[in-house]
Design a protein around this nucleic acid. Structure first.
Lengths: 229, 229
DNA sequence: TCAACTTCGTGTCAATGCGACACTAAGAAT
DNA sequence: ATTCTTAGTGTCGCATTGACACGAAGTTGA
């Protein structure tokens, strides 16, 4: 305990709001706390920042440690600093949100030592700290971002149907969208590649599978292009 | 100096990007550093966060202390955490951006003990720390925000002409706008109140003065309204 | 006082974008 | 073969957007 400073210092933490998409719901990953404070309560995955890592590195490390997730889409959300947000002492927390393909990560999520699980975003239990506020803010951001940036693909498998994509948009934006108009718009933006495959194992006409053209997207972003769905 | 912890802790700071509007330019307020590191270099106003204040409180306090500004529009921007962004030790900085009416604050800005001043945003000197990055990000945010939220008024005097408002938009967005279309759109959003005054002391036909209807704006925001200019 | 100068303030029209809307096609199940 | 379910497709009217020019008002200086 040789770390002594001239002035008092709060601790710095990161918390992650991890979104995943299930057939029917937008889910968020929560872990059950194993220690006080809030022992037994559900909380966002997160932890303290080390001295030799950036905030994003800390967020990725904690995600990997606590949920097994890695290489996910991750973006800074907001920094929460209410003086009493942690009952132990002053802790300022930088929140990130992540989007993951549930199909890829279903298994690992539950294999951590602590209990971890996916909850429908409108059906979360009471959360530790100010994590409910953080979740709220993350949802708003996701909604806002989805409108003008093609980030929805991060939540879907590599190959997906347009119906899945529309379903995702409807879940996040919380309203229904017209099928024809949606397809028109989303195809018009020119970032979807039609594959020659169709979905498998459905009890009705199979839908065509598409891929997101990430290469093209990156190129356009670099060229200063502006996406508004 | 009795503040001892089990693990090392970085320091937590806030930095403020303060925008102001001059007749011809969008300006940013800088202060000249009085101590190492970067002594003599220009930097964003800012400082360390106290244990009993939120980040926003810290930002407002520093603004008041270093530049005399108070009661300004202030919003969190981003948290910067490069490990070596401060040569002394680990410092994570939460950046805020502020919009002030230069007309109200021109005087105080220069009265601080240190040297402080307004610089055209495209004509800033080399900055201390990673403050150039912070400024860059603030500019992007301001541009993005201006598109869909009526925050430009924070930069203008209480009563202003539509030409001033257009000029501001042009400065921030860095492109010219059609006068008639601009007036149509901005009046259509219904948040401007026409006063019965006109500007004074100009060597040509005087323009009508308008006020921003903040009351109405707040009401609409509360009602969940969505502004897109 | 009149001519010159500067900025104010205003409307139309064409093109485009957007939302509403319904039926046939394909494939699986029975 | 019939039924069931979802896939996939085009038009049309309306609203929005952007391009575009000139007379009005007020000041200045000859």
């Amino acid at each position: 305990m040789p770390y002594t400073y001239e002035y008092p210092r709060g601790a710095l933490a990161v918390d992650c709001v991890v979104f995943g998409l299930d057939e029917n719901d937008l889910k968020v990953m929560l872990i059950q706390r194993g220690q006080a404070p809030f022992e037994g309560k559900w909380a966002l995955p997160g932890g303290f920042v080390h001295m030799d890592e950036t905030l994003e590195e800390a967020a990725r490390r904690e995600l990997e440690e606590e949920t097994g997730l890695h290489k996910v889409f991750l973006e800074q959300l907001y920094t929460f600093s209410a003086v009493d947000r942690d009952p132990r002492e002053r802790v300022v927390s930088v929140a990130y949100y992540a989007l993951v393909k549930l199909s890829d990560h279903k298994v690992q999520a539950a294999t951590d030592a602590r209990d971890a699980g996916w909850f429908g975003v409108h059906d979360v239990p009471s959360l530790a700290f100010d994590h409910a506020d953080i979740l709220q803010k993350a949802l708003e951001r996701l909604r806002g971002k989805l409108r003008y940036q093609p980030i929805g693909f991060e939540l879907l498998p590599k190959k997906f149907t347009l119906s899945q994509l529309q379903h995702l948009y409807q879940l996040v934006l919380e309203r229904t969208l017209d099928k024809r108009n949606f397809r028109k718009r989303v195809l018009a933006m020119g970032l979807l590649i039609e594959t020659d495959e169709v979905e498998q194992g459905v009890a009705h006409r199979a839908a065509r599978l598409y891929r997101f053209d990430e290469r093209k997207y990156r190129r356009l972003v670099k060229a200063g292009f502006n996406f508004e769905l």
